[in-house]
């Protein structure tokens, strides 16, 4: 849900249409909406490089919930164990 106050303060941007409750159940379904929004933000010079922003944003969605931890690399049956 887009914050109504922010949308109103940025009334010159036509993003108010997104305010209200959107039936978002899965962030994966929202790529088109976000893409559209990024276009507006770019035109308002809030985002300078939409492509980079969008890629980073997509990446952050894909990484939701990635746990912390470590990676181990083990060699089996090798002359030198890694």
């Amino acid at each position: 849900m887009i914050n109504n106050e922010i949308a109103q303060s940025k009334h010159e941007l036509d993003i108010y249409q997104f305010s209200g409750n959107l039936p978002i159940t899965n962030l994966r379904d929202c790529v088109d909406i976000i893409n559209y929004l990024v276009g507006f933000l770019a035109r308002a010079n809030i985002i300078t490089n939409p492509k980079v922003f969008f890629e980073e944003f997509q990446d952050s969605i894909e990484r939701i919930g990635t746990p912390a931890g470590k990676i181990t690399v083990i060699g089996y049956g090798m002359k030198e164990q890694l």
Binding site: P67, G69, I71, V73, G75, G77, M78
Partner: peptide, 10 residues
């Protein structure tokens, strides 16, 4: 033999 295991230990 000659097996490399990469593990995600989360």
């Amino acid at each position: 033999q000659n097996a490399l295991g990469i593990n995600a230990m989360s």
